[in-house]
């Protein structure tokens, strides 16, 4: 059983137990356009909430991805290295960025749920 939350930076965090799978939303990939490179952190690194954890580059520009919650990176999606377009094709599935063991469940609970995020997306465009 997993639960998903969203940030105002258009990241999703899918939590199963204490492991969060993090990626960018479909709205984000559409805004970015064709993703040509994703720079991911090394497994084992610890991030505090809000720290820059990854970079996603489209043809047009580079965008930072911030750690939506504090935690330790347990795994990164190395498939993105050779095939960054997966982020456009399946952002919520095969296009995930990294998994983190979260430090503080309250940080997760404070993020937007699906309904709040959809309302947020409507309001920002």
């Amino acid at each position: 059983m997993s639960e998903t939350r969203y940030t105002k930076d258009h990241e999703y965090i899918r939590l199963e137990g204490d492991i969060a799978t993090i990626g960018i939303t479909d709205f984000a990939q559409k805004q970015l356009g064709d993703v040509v490179y994703v720079e991911l952190p090394e497994a084992g690194l610890a991030f505090v909430k809000g720290a820059q954890a990854a970079v996603v580059e489209s043809v047009k520009a580079a965008s930072e991805v911030y750690a939506p919650v504090s935690g330790d990176v347990t795994e990164v999606n190395s498939a993105l290295e050779g095939a960054p377009a997966i982020v456009n094709e399946d952002p919520a599935g095969a296009g995930w960025f990294m998994k983190m063991r979260i430090h503080d469940a309250s940080e997760f609970n404070d993020l937007m749920d699906e309904a709040a995020y959809q309302a947020f997306v409507q309001s920002c465009c």
Binding site: D9, E11, Q31, A61, A62, S63, E64
Partner: peptide
């Protein structure tokens, strides 16, 4: 994800 687009 920080957007670099400017406000119109």
């Amino acid at each position: 994800m920080a957007s670099t687009d400017q406000d119109s």
